[in-house]
């Protein structure tokens, strides 16, 4: 069996939070943003990560590229441990793992032209290239993301949101990474533009054999691009399954609620469907509930859920389907 491209084991990210009114000798509180997350990602595969805001999806992505301090293990290419690497040691891996950010305007330097923005990663990661070689690469990359050649000397503010996102994608892909992490790449875009960007990512992935981590809060977006989906809540993995399995047979009450909350663009279906409502708000991550973190909003919760923490376990109907719940429902009727 070939080694997976990325193997994450027991990844935890903790923040020390100091209350502003706390006395100086008090020790800070610990906020566990990501708790014991494990998954593997093969070459060319797409893993979708969904969850509400505050569920730790972005922190997880940032931890993988060492933008957050994490504990646990991140094995790259089956042999290199990324956690604990210095900035210098990390540099070669940065060209293999690239990032596309949510806000298309904020993630581009407003003082650089499009050409300079897309070229910059090359000057860092492939300094042996000459200026003309770099320009050539920039031009062909712009063509691949459907930007026009005459736009090379324009500035980001002259572009629409969708075009800025194309620039961001071109910048990420110019160093030919093996893994692309997309953090909510389409949530700031209009519906008609979202479809364009999703199609672009899908076709580039096929061409370049990219692996992708695709983070979104929108389940329908994730469905269209992912092979497997991981559902997170309060920093923990609630459920992980093949895309087709997860949407047909969601086993975790949280996944079921998420899926049932997505409005269907069909008046009859939308008005007749049964919706699973979540109780209350997401609890503060500073003091998560005991036992199962979801139990405060779960309609099936029992006393067992408060005392015993469920582990992520296989559901049995497929080895790829695992769920972290004491009472996983069989299917959503």
């Amino acid at each position: 069996m070939t080694k997976p491209l990325l193997e994450v084991k027991n990844l935890c990210v903790d923040y020390d939070i100091r209350n502003e009114h706390a006395l100086p000798w008090k020790s800070p509180q610990t906020l566990q943003a990501v708790k014991e997350v494990s998954f593997t990602l093969g070459a060319g595969e797409t893993l979708g990560i969904v969850g509400e805001s505050g569920s730790g999806k972005s922190t997880l992505a940032r931890a993988i590229v060492q933008l957050e301090k994490a504990t646990g293990s991140i094995l790259w290419g089956g042999d290199t441990e990324l956690i604990g690497l210095s900035r210098q040691q990390m540099l070669p891996f940065r060209s293999q793992i690239q990032f596309v950010f949510q806000d298309p305007f904020a993630s581009l330097n407003p003082r650089l032209t499009v050409g300079q923005i897309i070229e910059e990663p090359l000057t860092v990661h492939q300094p042996q290239l000459s200026r003309t070689q770099r320009r050539e690469r920039v031009r062909s990359m712009m063509h691949r993301v459907s930007l026009l050649p005459n736009q090379i000397n324009r500035y980001p503010h002259e572009f629409s949101g969708g075009q800025c996102q194309r620039i961001g994608i071109a910048r990420a892909l110019i160093v030919e990474p093996r893994l692309l992490i997309c953090d909510e790449p389409v949530s700031a875009l209009d519906v008609s533009i979202q479809a364009q960007i999703i199609n672009l990512l899908n076709s580039l992935q096929k061409e370049m054999g990219l692996a992708m981590l695709f983070i979104a809060h929108d389940l329908s977006v994730v469905k269209h691009i992912s092979d497997r989906v991981m559902v997170m809540y309060l920093g923990k993995v609630m459920e992980m399954a093949d895309c087709s399995v997860l949407y047909k047979q969601p086993s975790h009450p949280y996944t079921q609620a998420l899926i049932s909350a997505v409005p269907l663009p069909d008046p009859q279906q939308e008005r007749s469907k049964k919706r699973i409502l979540l109780l209350g708000d997401m609890p503060s991550p500073l003091s998560p509930p005991s036992g199962c973190v979801f139990r405060t909003r779960c309609q099936y919760a029992t006393t067992e859920c408060a005392t015993r923490t469920p582990q992520l376990q296989s559901t049995g109907n497929s080895s790829e389907h695992s769920v972290s719940c004491h009472f996983p429902a069989v299917s959503l009727s």
């Binding site: 519906v191 008609s192 979202q194 364009q196 999703i198 199609n199 389940l219 269209h224 663009p265």
Partner: peptide, 17 residues
């Protein structure tokens, strides 16, 4: 209507305006 990402369809080819 064609470019909406839907949960209730299997088709992965997505129309974009």
């Amino acid at each position: 209507l064609n470019s909406i990402l839907r949960l209730d369809t299997e088709d992965n080819a997505l129309y974009a305006i």
